[in-house]
């Protein structure tokens, strides 16, 4: 995964040849939104002086002062609650929870408080906050720093969930998330922070709820999320060498979900494969497979297949860890099986 290359077919707009890393694109989105709107502020563990453990917020505090880039104690539930209280009263906080694994500590605040305030109050209280956190294994960080728990929050009505795969998408989606009036959680694969990709100069946003066709094809639909998009694109390239035209679709947001784009593609290709790095059971792949099956059943030539992380705690030992993560080889193999070619 560390050798991921941006691909030309990710391009969407005139880009002036400029490239940014995934981390730089996020940083640029944060800085632009903070310049645009004085209500936007950042808080989290080590986000200020240290610039974040993954250096995503490096330099932001120098521009915006510690008043708007707040280093917090290591109190995940508490800082989530503080962000909610600030959002309820006129601010637009962007909270960083360093590792996605630590979102388990903020579940009451996000699930019982942030997600429900608007509904429980009959539309009076809103919580315009963003929670940025990480996902993804491969960093040899073992079971408590490697999980991809985006299914947990996708399950909750009232929360929006964003899961970008490229620097371009990360920037445009984060800007939309900050402007959204509902609580939005963004999962950033920590293995992609150094991934480079085209990001045009100047203002743009990407609406939440719009899937992106990362590669067009006719024979099979591969729906992939986050870093799995790159694995899917590499697999699609290899499949093309065998004369198979694979379409790769990135939902980009798990809620709102652009079900129509997934279903339309499956109707066109008659075969669908879902790739996501969360756990397999009761997870994203199951949900997306169900959406496609319900929407395109009579067009399908085979059952929808899915590839996800192993249902085990992420192991430390590198060969064991690598075995738990979906890879290009497995995507190619599964796609060939779906197409009846083995």
């Amino acid at each position: 995964m560390s050798t991921l290359e941006p691909r030309p077919d990710e391009l969407h707009a005139a880009v002036n040849g400029r490239e940014l890393t995934f981390a730089e694109a996020i940083r640029e989105a944060l800085a632009e939104e903070m310049r645009r709107d004085p209500r936007v502020f950042l808080m989290g563990e080590d986000v200020g002086g240290a610039g974040g453990v993954f250096k995503v917020t490096e330099g932001i505090q120098a521009e915006f002062t510690p008043k708007r880039v707040i280093d917090t104690p290591i109190s995940e539930a508490g800082i989530a609650g503080i962000a909610i209280g600030a959002a309820l009263t006129g601010m637009r906080p962007v909270l960083e929870i360093m590792f996605g694994d630590f979102t388990t500590l903020v579940m009451d605040q996000m699930v019982n408080q942030a997600a429900k305030a608007y509904y429980m109050s009959g539309g009076k209280l809103s919580v315009p906050m963003v929670l940025r956190t990480t996902m993804g294994a491969g960093r040899r960080s073992a079971a408590q720093h490697s999980q991809s728990l985006h299914a947990w929050t996708s399950h909750i009505p009232g929360l929006k969930v964003v899961i970008p795969s490229t620097p371009y998408d990360a920037k445009g989606l984060l800007k939309s998330a900050i402007r959204d009036n509902s609580p939005v959680i963004i999962f950033e694969d920590k293995m992609m922070y150094k991934l480079k990709g085209p990001v045009p100069e100047g203002e743009y946003t990407i609406p939440l709820g719009l899937a992106d066709v990362k590669r067009e094809g006719q024979d099979i639909t591969i729906v992939a999320t986050s870093s799995m998009v790159h694995i899917a694109l590499s697999a699609a390239e290899r499949l093309s060498e065998q004369g198979i035209s694979a379409e790769v679709i990135d939902p980009r947001t798990l809620f709102p979900l652009d079900a129509q784009t997934l279903i339309s593609s499956a109707k066109k290709t008659s075969r669908a494969l879902i790739v996501d790095e969360g756990y397999r059971r009761y997870g994203i792949t199951g949900e997306l497979a169900s959406v496609i099956t319900e929407g395109a059943f009579y067009y399908l030539d085979a059952p929808v297949r899915r590839i996800a992380a192993f249902d085990v705690p992420v192991p430390f030992s590198p060969p064991l860890e690598d075995a738990t993560i979906p890879n290009e080889e497995l995507v190619v193999k599964t796609a060939l099986e779906l197409l009846g070619r083995r």
Partner: peptide
């Protein structure tokens, strides 16, 4: 809850609004 009166809401989770209150103070 009644925003017009500054009531940020009753809460069904015991202690659930302690940090929300601090957040309103920060705001």
């Amino acid at each position: 809850a009644d925003q017009d009166m500054g009531n940020l809401g009753a809460n069904g989770i015991v202690g659930g609004s302690a940090a929300i209150a601090a957040g309103a103070g920060l705001s």
